[in-house]
């Protein structure tokens, strides 16, 4: 199988590490070779963060380069727009429509671009944009956005819902399991 590339992007602190952990667990049960590349340290402090997940028969590079991503999963709209150059031709962007102003916008040095979903579509890219934050809140916690997004991503993979649920069970604390399962289902069915 040709290597598949997933990028998970967002704002430092939004929970992308849990999403990549979940994906890693799931893919490992299928016997794939996997590499997951994370960012730690300085850039985590509210900055733009990106995690790479690659899987296939044999994966060499730990990173996804420009024009290589089959999927870009984004926690935040501006971050989805930032990484479009990484999308493979025919790839798909899955994004929450949540907007978080970066510091240059807060200070008035820059503007948050308007109509980003339409602009990404106009550039010929396939984008699935939805309000993952509201679904997470509906599930019981705004922090479950990561699992809502994984639910949405699951629609484009041939893994069974049961396989995903097993991976969730292995990745989240027991007391948050029901909440996360609900978040996953809301994302998947949305």
């Amino acid at each position: 199988m040709e290597t598949k590339n997933i990028m998970i992007v967002g704002v430092g602190g939004q929970g992308s590490l849990l999403a990549s952990k979940l994906l890693g667990r799931l893919l490992l049960t299928r016997g794939y070779d996997i590499k997951v590349s994370e960012v730690h340290g300085m850039s985590q402090r509210g900055g733009s963060v990106v995690t790479y997940v690659r899987f296939g028969d044999k994966v060499y590079s730990p990173i996804v380069d420009k024009g290589e991503a089959d999927f870009i999963v984004s926690f935040e709209l501006l971050e989805a727009a930032r990484y479009t150059e990484d999308l493979k031709k025919g790839g798909k962007i899955i994004t929450s429509t949540q907007q978080i102003n970066p510091m240059p916008v807060i200070t008035g040095a820059a503007c948050y671009p308007a109509e980003l979903v339409a602009k990404i579509q106009a550039a010929g890219m396939d984008i699935d944009a939805f309000d993952a934050l509201s679904l997470a809140e509906q599930a019981g916690s705004a922090k479950a956005v990561n699992i809502v997004l994984m639910g949405r991503l699951s629609k484009y993979f041939d893994f069974s819902e049961e396989e995903w649920m097993t991976a969730i069970e292995q990745s989240v604390p027991a007391k948050f399991l029901e909440l996360n399962k609900k978040a996953f289902t809301l994302g998947r069915d949305a």
Binding site: Q44, A81, A110
Partner: peptide
């Protein structure tokens, strides 16, 4: 040959790390 992607023409404001 290296893979190539397509950046948006829109200027995307930077998101530098900030004090929490």
């Amino acid at each position: 040959a290296a893979a190539e992607g397509k950046a948006l023409e829109e200027a995307i404001p930077a998101r530098p790390p900030v004090m929490c």
